[in-house]
């Protein structure tokens, strides 16, 4: 199913404009992620698609050619995974998964077959008769997913499905979820504030800020080609190198950096993985912090740009705090954005 939104906006009764008029198309089978900081309108957009919020007049929502703008949530045939999972505590795992089928008045034998199929797909066979209270966080997430998918919805909507989990579990389940969603072969929209999550799961990511979509594209496009300072900073935490550009040279507080092309009034960003501590470096800074992260160190360096520059250092030893270090950055790794993108 193709989802198509035109001119979709939401103003709350207190006057807050949670969502400015938005155009969005999600193709059949595509997994789209809505990524943004809290309060950017991503959850509101998801809830409008689900039918849990009424959009402003003039908004239009199409599921293929079906205009669902005025349809109640229970008539829309959407599958939704809630942030808290919202599993019914009065029903077993099976009861939860079968609830949507019961609402569709599916014949019991067909419903049972479908439940078994979904249980197997989500590896929940052994838990089918358990009470919801007896499940772990990861199991709950799978039940929520199974419940949403069982009635064969037209679209699957996931609201921060991983945020209720422990950090250690989150990464494993993130990859698991990415595999499962592709197995379902369904159009899906996935809301998150975690860029790593969005990139790992989605085919396409829409970055949202202040009620609008600021940029959308594949994870690679967003990472390599951010169109604004906000996207550059939010996706992959790019750091601003503020200095003065002249031709192919950028003069910073800590030295001169080569640029890949002639620039005049543009902004230059760099990511931590491209900041290398090396004796041959052209920039000089002072180590402010060193954090040991197991596989690597994260070094905070001041004195190069106006902010602290972070560098990823994969080595056995780290410099000491207060040491002066040389830093080199490959000019090809720099992100150069027009200055108009400065406004957030």
């Amino acid at each position: 199913m193709t989802l198509h939104l035109t001119n979709t906006a939401k103003t709350f009764s207190d006057g807050t404009r949670a969502l400015l008029p938005i155009e969005l198309t999600v193709k059949t089978g595509e997994i789209m992620s809505l990524l943004g900081p809290s309060g950017c309108g991503k959850t509101t957009l998801l809830r409008i698609i689900a039918g849990l919020e009424t959009p402003d007049t003039g908004s239009q929502i199409f599921f293929d050619d079906d205009d669902v703008t005025l349809q109640q949530v229970e008539d829309r045939k959407v599958g939704m995974v809630f942030q808290s999972y919202a599993l019914f505590p009065n029903m077993s795992v099976r009861g939860n998964i079968g609830y949507g089928l019961k609402m569709q008045k599916l014949a019991p034998d067909k419903a049972n077959a479908r439940i078994n199929e979904v249980l197997e797909m989500c590896q929940l066979e052994k838990l089918a008769l358990r009470s919801i209270k007896a499940l772990s966080g990861g199991q709950r997430q799978r039940v929520a997913l199974a419940r949403a998918i069982a009635p064969r919805p037209r679209i699957l909507l996931l609201d921060e499905p991983l945020s209720a989990l422990d950090a250690s579990l989150r990464e494993v389940l993130r990859d698991e979820l990415a595999v499962l969603l592709r197995k379902f072969n369904i159009t899906a929209i996935f809301v998150t504030h975690d860029q790593a999550e969005a990139m790992a799961i989605a085919d396409r990511v829409a970055v949202m800020d202040h009620g609008t979509i600021v940029q959308s594209g594949t994870p690679e496009e967003l990472y390599r080609n951010p169109q604004s300072m906000f996207v550059a900073k939010f996706v992959g935490s790019a750091m601003l190198l503020d200095g003065s550009c002249k031709g192919k040279k950028l003069t910073l507080a800590g030295g001169v950096q080569d640029l890949p092309k002639n620039t005049t009034d543009e902004l230059v960003f760099v990511r931590a993985e491209d900041v290398h501590i090396s004796k041959k470096g052209s920039l000089t800074g002072t180590v402010q912090t060193t954090t040991f992260l197991g596989t690597h160190y994260r070094i905070g360096i001041s004195g190069i740009a106006s902010g602290v520059l972070t560098s990823i250092l994969a080595g056995q030893t780290a410099p000491n705090i207060g040491d002066t270090v040389k830093v080199s950055i490959n000019p090809e790794a720099l992100l150069i954005l027009p200055n108009g993108a400065h406004k957030e």
């Binding site: 229970e74 599958g79 009065n90 609830y99 949507g100």
Partner: peptide, 21 residues
């Protein structure tokens, strides 16, 4: 509220949600 929204997204009408949830 969220439990009811979940039931609604699965196709349950308000009276149904009241009785089942």
């Amino acid at each position: 509220k969220t439990l009811e929204e979940a039931a609604a997204s699965l196709g349950a009408s308000p009276p149904r949600r009241f009785l089942n949830i």
